[in-house]
Design a protein around this nucleic acid. Structure first.
Lengths: 230, 230
DNA sequence: ACGATATGAATGAATG
DNA sequence: CATTCATTCATATCGT
């Protein structure tokens, strides 16, 4: 999925939108749409997979966006859509690829491409549960009761020095992170059936699918398939 | 578009391994991307044009993929993307028909290719209608064919009342679009471009727009709008 | 070998 | 949440 990442030379390169426009560089990413940077994606995924955030609250969205802004332009809605889409696609895929060959997955050792991941903890306070078991995907028990965003302080810890590092409480240490399946993951219990109900706010259940978190580099142009599918 | 077609292997030379050959990889296709076989394409088009399927449901996708698997390797997502792309491109092309540019191109006309072949029969018989050109451009009436083919069950062959055919909507002459307020901010803070830059700035508390009422922000926005206006 | 084109794949943004 | 639309990236393939 997001493995190959498009181009996002929002850096110095002129972007050259290939449309009728020949505008040169007025607005960054001339295209009107947000083009996430690698760091932004990395963080978003981290929040998604390692922190179980699936449908952030408005509050969280704002904070996340604020943090991600360090790595490039971004707005709240981008964060909002990102989570929506990521989640939806994860499910969708599962949906139309139910029994189809969920094969053995060769353990393509996931390289540890960049391990300088800025890990961010939006709102974890001092609660460090043990649920931090990101790397070993096997068990997403994740009872995660957390999500009590009572704090206003963003945990943001993003990394800092070049390298790993976590800084933040639950951040996993990085490393290892095996990539596993995607669609055949854990059962998709109906979970949130909030339909008629009301609330459903805070809980934000997540069935966690702990996954991969692939890092893509601009260097790694090739397929994502290996990791993704399945 | 569907004019030139790539009839690749499958016939004489089996270049690619296809089938989950245990060759070396578990199941990963050796090739990067799915390369539909002639039969698969024929069937897909048949479903598209003769059965009016434009956006198959997850359910249909599964079945279609299962059927097409007889003719070569294929996954649900391939079917999904195929329909998405086919539809999008058909529309896209049509969209650029501002009068000044008469469509010199004779319609694709793929049909008749082989009628000696399989006409998908996902779960029912199949009927053959006269394949009518799907995109007769002139008329953008567009009554929103959305889901005309409401079948919940792949109508592939006929689903209830056959009516295969029709559904062609695609008119799509209007492109209203007005809500877009794309912003184009000027000089964003872009320094830390993609990856690499790990500038750090710890304490960065959220600052963000910090609106007056940020107390009860814990709600989950259903749409981006909600987030925005809050 | 390129360059153009067709088209598979991905994903941001919306809408229902 | 599910679906859909628009764009864009990536690559297979063909023409010259």
């Amino acid at each position: 999925m997001e493995t190959h990442q498009q181009q996002q030379q929002q850096a110095g390169d002129h972007i050259q939108d290939n449309f009728g426009n020949k505008n040169s560089y007025p607005c960054r990413q001339s295209s009107t749409r947000w083009t996430p940077t690698s760091d932004q994606i990395r963080i978003l995924k981290d929040l998604y997979y390692n922190n179980g955030i699936r449908s952030p609250t408005a509050d969280q969205i704002q904070r996340i966006a604020a943090q991600l802004r360090q790595y490039g332009k971004i707005e709240g809605k981008n964060v909002f859509y990102w989570f929506q889409n990521h989640k939806a696609r994860e499910r969708q895929k599962k949906r139309f690829t139910p029994a189809t060959a969920p094969p053995p997955l060769p353990p393509p050792h996931f390289d540890h491409i960049n391990h300088h991941l800025p890990t961010m903890q939006i709102q974890s306070h001092h609660h460090h549960y043990h649920h931090q078991e990101p790397p070993p995907p096997p068990h997403p028990l994740y009872t995660h009761p957390h999500k009590l965003y009572t704090t206003h302080h963003i945990g943001v810890g993003s990394s800092s020095s070049s390298q790993g590092v976590m800084a933040v409480g639950c951040g996993y240490g990085s490393v290892a992170m095996e990539k596993s399946f995607r669609e055949c993951s854990i059962s998709p219990p109906g979970e949130s059936k909030t339909s008629g109900g009301i609330s459903r706010n805070i809980g934000s259940r997540s069935r966690i699918g702990v996954d991969p978190c692939s890092f893509f580099d601009k260097f790694k142009p090739k397929t994502y398939e290996m990791l993704e599918n399945h």
